[in-house]
Design a protein around this nucleic acid. Structure first.
Lengths: 346, 346
DNA sequence: TAGCCTCTAGACAACGTTGTCAAAAGCGTT
DNA sequence: AACGCTTTTGACAACGTTGTCTAGAGGCTA
């Protein structure tokens, strides 16, 4: 093969470069670059020759080199808590769609709710020079991001606010949603209501607790210390918390669960009890209408949160300068039955 | 500031490079590289000076440049059908974990079940020179990947086999699972069983259909053409298909649903009917035990599929040469009630 | 003290692309 | 036939890192 002699042969594991294509087509390097990028100023005839060489050699532009040269990577990073959590699926997908519409790829990873791992992941993404970051924070101190932001990496936080730095953030109205949920239970006659939520260091957990307390206070109801349980969302912990609230002479007659994992466990507990227990869960889930009783929930619009966050990110990337924004996405109470069980039935 | 004069000042949006660090620390470029990468042959004193400069300037290695130089990107691509589909959550997460344990990042995207979009996404990942790809194929012709594979990009297909190329693939035992499911219904007395599955161009849909037909044939049961409906998994389509099977003088007495989206709709339909209908679904889902009746399913181990696929990928990346493998992950029938309803009750 | 060896350090090229600039070619006008 | 203009083309440097190679410093032995 003449190519071998010319030095444009392909060894296994070695890819042809623009130089190879140029040699093959008998044109200059830059001309190949122009063809590959659809830049003007190339004769149809030359273009054809280059295209031919590209096809024969199986050339594909090396974006690593392009990125190095251009400075922009056309990729954004998404750091969330757990890729397997159904709550993040629609959010993930929404961010991807927006990225795609801007021609960017999505690099993502799970922090597993571990601040150290979050930081490690975020900095790895920064080293890759992603153009921007969408972060569902696990930690509560993000000052480590300051040099990165100063260097131009746009950053938007979702679901929970950033810690100790000023950045865009998109939140659900946790406080309002929780307050509405608890007020709903109170309206149906409950006076002793338990709250099982996520770890206290998680912002949304505290906001939902605040909503709970506010609704109780507004109704003039006292809150017994034993009615509030914050901590891990592991089923055993949730079971233990629920058992504690349901024991004793004055058990709670209704439960407000702070997120979808807690809710699922709570539904299981309900199913095992002889008599129903009123329940409202924060965050909707598939089939919530099919279990019996159907579960009343405070629904968050995860897809909208993702879209909003990614939209904000690309606004920044498009160079729009404005002070950091805080966007709150409203929640919606969906009544299905479990929240409307009166205390007498419990 | 002396730095300005020296040319090592930081402008907004410009990051310090190793050159800047070197100038600041008064050492050579390569020495900085050695410190950054923990290579030996640097005096403790020199190392300290370099570290100091790194911290002051807020330097972070540019991995784009590193990748260009080294040829490996330490990242793998994952292309799946829909990031928001709960079935892919655990798979996604499992792949991520394996990637992480190998020090690689995960770039992913949804094909939305569109072959053209799959190809576009895959080729974009190849242009980024990911080290390997895990693909849940939407298309049925993957010859476009040949040059990429020849160039050394490792590729593993999951859930469905590759089309017209020879590559590693990790599958569920769709045939066996379906056969077992239908045999289970037959064992409970059903003779007219409907199958609602995914589009015929999807490999798993056909395999499950084959399992269905085999089980029926093995029991000596005829299959009426109207009992089989392949197509979109949109709720309306599934409803229409079910309605057709349940109409007429000889309606089906049991339903076998070909994937979890179909199952969810089928559960809804069941709930709306005055009398129960036997149902077995392919693919487990959260709360399948809590709806009533609880749903009997053929469970796939998505996490194991992801782990296996990623494991295979990294084996290839570690240079292990062997002919393409086809791994089949067994399924498991989980009986919960809906599959054990006898035909008389229907 | 000369000779040799080891260890630290830096100069330089290379990875594959794109931006800049200048040369060459084509064409119409005078 | 000479000039100027536009269009096409390619040479070259640069992006920020790492691998190779060599120089210099320092210590040890003969």
């Amino acid at each position: 093969m003449t190519d071998t002699a010319r030095g444009t042969a392909r060894r296994y594991g070695t890819r042809p470069t623009m130089k190879d294509v140029a040699a093959r087509a008998g044109v200059g390097l830059k001309t190949v670059s122009r063809v590959v990028n659809g830049e003007p100023g190339v004769t149809p005839d030359t273009e054809r020759r280059v295209q031919e060489a590209i096809t024969t050699l199986g050339f594909r532009r090396n974006d690593s080199a392009r990125i190095l040269r251009k400075g922009r990577t056309a990729s954004i990073g998404l750091v969330l808590e757990d890729l397997a959590d159904p709550f993040y699926g629609p959010l993930n997908r929404a961010v991807e769609e927006v990225a795609r519409s801007h021609g960017a790829l999505l690099i993502n990873g799970s922090s597993a709710e571990d601040p150290a791992r979050e930081q490690e992941l975020v900095l790895a993404l920064c080293a890759r020079r992603v153009d921007g970051l969408v972060i569902i924070p696990a930690g509560d101190d993000h000052r480590y991001l300051e040099p990165e932001i100063a260097a131009g990496i746009a950053t938007v936080f979702v679901d929970r606010p950033a810690g100790r730095i000023d950045a865009d953030v998109v939140l659900s109205d946790s406080f309002g949603g929780a307050r509405e949920a608890v007020a709903h239970l109170i309206a149906h006659g409950h006076r002793r209501i338990g709250f099982i939520g996520d770890q206290p260091r998680i912002h949304t957990a505290m906001e939902r607790l605040r909503g709970y307390r506010t609704a109780m206070a507004e109704a003039g109801l006292p809150v017994d210390a034993s009615w509030v349980a914050l901590g891990s969302t592991a089923p055993e912990r949730v079971r233990a918390a629920a058992a504690a609230m349901l024991a004793g002479p004055e058990p709670v007659t209704a439960l407000f669960s702070g997120n979808n994992r807690v809710t699922v466990t709570a539904v299981r507990i309900l199913g095992e009890r002889p008599r129903p227990l009123a329940l409202v869960g924060f965050d909707d889930f598939e089939l919530a209408d099919l279990v019996s009783p159907a579960i009343t929930v405070v629904a968050q619009d995860a897809a909208r949160m993702g879209r909003t966050a990614a939209g904000l990110l690309f606004r920044r990337l498009d160079g729009i300068e404005e002070p950091p924004r805080r966007v709150e996405i409203p929640t919606r109470l969906i009544t299905r039955g479990s929240g409307e069980i009166p205390p007498e039935d419990v």
